[in-house]
Design a protein around this nucleic acid. Structure first.
Lengths: 150, 150
DNA sequence: TTTAATCTTGACAAAATCGGTCGGGTATAA
DNA sequence: TTATACCCGACCGATTTTGTCAAGATTAAA
């Protein structure tokens, strides 16, 4: 599995926040229930996302989390990168790439770079708003639909 | 690191076989020396690749490994998949996908599928022959070049 | 003011995976 | 017959994954 549970659960949870954006905060408890996740594990995940500035929280009764930005301004890739670390195929590509002796002459480097670029193109081209749109469309085409996870 | 050492070392080693294709076999020892890898670890890697039918071996003195097919008929993706297992972002995509309750209604499934497709497009569109071509071009444009790894 | 809800933080731990090593085989060319 | 090379399964320490547990801080509401 390229994406660990942190990233997969995290994206599902953030998707709930995106659906409810503009309607105040949601508690970890309610999201954990909806998505059938452990509250304590989800705490860890949201804590990371908050640390990265993607979420804001309110303490106390009636508090909870919400997105720090509009869903259309949060790329799926951002969420995944915060939770998984940088998704690079090898050390010689990516933001904090360890430069090898001579990248210009390294044959496998070309492969890793293409994988990295392709991957990031995909995950940064989809926003949370896109996910919500997809969801609305699925709902309207199959009105009996219930939330499903994978 | 999305690709582990098995995949990264393996691709480098197989690239050596591709460069020498048509010139008989190469021993693990010589490749391990060239690419600065442990012989015993490389044995494990080649054993897997042989099991998958990508390599053939000759035992005894003067023996070694060679590609089972022409480099142009071996995709980088095939090598990586044999060594890494299927490179799926989640359980619900890929050949041996665990079907979730209702994929057609699952919002995150769309994301995992797009990542999976993008990834496989890249790695199955490059063959070992492409790598060798790249290498020859690099050599001719910088004739003083030595082999470099990353 | 008290209470309950909620986020916050850090430690802990079982299980799986990673990145190999070790110690023997077996087949074959020289 | 001997040296070379592949073959194979067990093992092993370190790290990462996937969480759990406990205690505390903050705040809204009763």
């Amino acid at each position: 599995m390229i994406i660990s549970t942190k990233g997969r659960y995290g994206l599902r949870a953030v998707f709930e926040l995106a659906k409810a954006h503009g309607q105040g905060t949601m508690s970890i408890k309610s999201i954990a229930e909806m998505q059938d996740l452990s509250e304590q594990y989800l705490e860890q995940i949201f804590s990371k996302l908050k640390g990265a500035g993607l979420l804001v929280s309110t303490r106390g009764a009636g508090g909870g989390y919400k997105l720090a930005f509009d869903p259309k301004d949060i790329a799926v890739g951002k969420v995944l990168t915060v939770l998984e670390g940088e998704l690079a195929p090898a050390e010689c590509v990516g933001d904090d790439a360890a430069q090898c002796d001579n990248v210009a002459l390294c044959t496998t480097h070309v492969i890793w770079q293409r994988i990295y670029d392709g991957f990031n193109d995909v995950i940064y081209s989809i926003t949370l708003a896109d996910m919500v749109d997809d969801y609305q469309k699925m709902l309207s085409s199959k009105p009996q639909a219930k939330d499903v996870r994978c």
